[in-house]
């Protein structure tokens, strides 16, 4: 299947400026990342906070332009942010935020906000919009009487459903969910994730699901990419990666997820400091925290190499680790 969205070698560098004339160290928030998502499929992106997941999501949506590399939607490059063409494109792709309260205008009702994309893109008559509102609320599991409420009168889970209804209003082909359930109670997390799965099945939406919580990502993803300091260190079929991660960082993450039944991996605790993107270690960026690091890892940066099972791993010891895992 041809991918709906394709990112090829995309990088994004932030220069934190201090004052009017000061220049800070550049931060490579996303470094040479390549991804694809096909319609009806979900790509999970996992990694510690600050590794560049959100930036990757914004780049995928064309909310910012990459400093290098290309992002293609339906085989064509995206329009420049802020242009009329770019605004029109927004109807086809949407972002769901971690903080639904912050993502909504606290002065407008849920109904006004859910219908706002239709107003913006001039879709439908007033009567059609009203009908659409009822459908959308039903699809995300919100009672119709909540439509006239304001955001702060809703619970966290209801708010996230409302944000989702707004995102779905224009029938987008691509949905980027950036930590959509991290701020919610665990019991509600599962409901929202299940609802997303159902919606995707019904509408054939392509999804990028960003989270630092592997348990949630595992529930919903077809493929998964593990990021570390702006780069993808392991990427492949979700089942394969979660069952037998190869990259030592991915192994550490997966081993930290509580599982029922016998454990296949023994718990690996990450040692060393969490990474600082402004001071990227030389060689393999993960080597200061890696129990398996060799001398080579300190100087030589590993490439993302396709393994025999089709998975891609950026580790000098990927071959032997893959054999050991099998």
């Amino acid at each position: 299947m041809t991918p709906l969205l394709e990112m090829q070698g995309v990088s994004r560098v932030y220069r934190a400026r201090r004052g009017l004339f000061g220049t800070g160290t550049p931060v490579r928030a996303v470094d040479h990342v390549s991804l694809q998502v096909a319609p009806g499929r979900t790509l999970g992106i996992v990694g510690e906070s600050g590794c560049g997941k959100s930036t990757a999501g914004r780049l995928a949506l064309g909310l910012e332009r990459p400093d290098s590399g290309a992002v293609q939607f339906r085989g064509a490059p995206m329009a420049a942010p802020g242009t009329a063409a770019w605004r029109a494109e927004r109807a086809q792709m949407q972002l769901v935020f971690q903080d639904p309260l912050g993502a909504m205008d606290r002065r407008l009702t849920i109904a006004q906000q859910v219908l706002e994309p239709l107003e913006i893109h001039g879709i439908g008559t007033a009567a059609e919009r009203r009908e659409r509102l009822a459908t959308l609320l039903r699809d995300v599991g919100l009672r119709a009487d909540l439509a006239e409420r304001h955001p702060h009168q809703l619970s966290g889970g209801q708010r996230q459903r409302a944000v989702l209804a707004r995102a779905l209003a224009t029938d987008p082909a691509l949905l980027v969910c950036d930590e959509p359930v991290s701020a919610l109670d665990v019991s509600i997390q599962a409901q929202i994730v299940n609802m997303l799965t159902d919606l995707q099945a019904a509408r054939g939406i392509a999804m990028i699901f960003i989270s630092h919580d592997l348990a949630v990502v595992r529930l919903i993803s077809h493929e998964v990419a593990v990021m570390y300091l702006g780069r993808i260190v392991e990427q492949g079929e979700a089942e394969a990666v979660f069952a037998a991660p190869i990259h030592p960082y991915a192994r550490a993450l997966v081993s930290a997820v509580p599982v029922s039944g016998p454990r296949r991996l023994e718990r690996i605790v990450l040692s060393g400091d969490p990474p600082n993107p402004a001071q990227r270690p030389p060689g393999c960026a993960f080597h200061p925290r890696c129990a398996l690091a060799l001398a080579r890892c300190r100087t030589e940066d590993p490439d993302l190499v396709t393994q025999s099972d089709g998975r891609m791993v950026a580790c000098h010891r990927a071959g032997e680790l893959a054999r050991a895992a099998a």
Binding site: L61, L63, R87, A88, E89, R90, A91, Q94, L95, F97, D99, G102, A103, M104, D105, R106, E116, P117, I120, H121, V163, R166
Partner: peptide
């Protein structure tokens, strides 16, 4: 930077709106 303005912008709203 974060809040509702960013959310509305990515819906495709014009700066005026």
């Amino acid at each position: 930077a974060q809040g509702y303005a960013a959310a509305v912008r990515q819906l495709g709203a014009t700066p005026g709106r």
